[in-house]
Amino acid sequence: MPIAFEKVSHVYSTGTPYEFKALDGVDLAFTEGRMTAVIGRTGSGKSTLVQHLNALLLPSEGTVRVLDREITAGSTPKGLKKLRGDVGLIFQFPEYQLFEETVLKDVSFGPKNFGASEEDARKRAKQALRLCGLEEQYDERSPLELSGGQKRRAAIAGVLAMDPKVLVLDEPTAGLDPRGTEEMMKLFRTLNKKNNKTIIIVTHDMEQVFQYCDEVVVMADGKVAAHMSTDEFFADSSVCRGLGILPPAIIRTCDALREAGFDIPKEIRTSAALAKCVAQQVRRHG
């Protein structure tokens, strides 16, 4: 089932002096079952793009197809609830959505909205909380008592508990510490691989794109500037640099070594492999 944009434009504040075209004729199809990164500068239309995926924003022009829904500009779609259950959207700094008295109640809020029974919702909430690394002891605490990182986990669990088919994340790791970031990214990768969820993630962090994602969509001025597999994207630094993006540290290091006369094969992706390759060559010439 498709997750696709056809000639989609989105204009904010139409007919006022503040009119702004955030998306401009976007043609794009996300691949199902893969983890796709959406990158681009601030104001390039990333957030606007992903908010079309669960119809929080409706296109000003063009058509958005998500799973079995088709949303065309000019129509006023009804009953978007099912779509919102199928496409879980996690905003930047999602901790501001917490409002219930206890963490468990808050996380079961989503499933209950989509018609799950009290008992079922609790069960799913508990599963989601454990998945996000929040132990049982936090279930009955007030969300406001948690630390920043724990709040983030609880908020993400609140969307995972809905068990969506597609998970859309808008900078989910902004403001987390390096360890928390790594755990979160690993969790999303597991959800993608094991639970077969399509994941679309907006990020500024090239290391995350490089390490965890299958495909990259580059946005610039409301248009899709590039859409390719991560392997192609990082094959050498020319693609990144052509788009004005600083490649990940490992790619930059490989580049610098090549320039210094080393023969570094393209498959090298980790610092350990790179070290081994360099050591061999040094020894050979030694």
Partner: peptide, 15 residues
């Protein structure tokens, strides 16, 4: 912002 986040969690502000 909050409205959008809660709508994403299945809150129906209109219906």
């Amino acid at each position: 912002r909050i409205m959008k986040a809660q709508e994403s969690r299945g809150v129906d502000m209109k219906e």
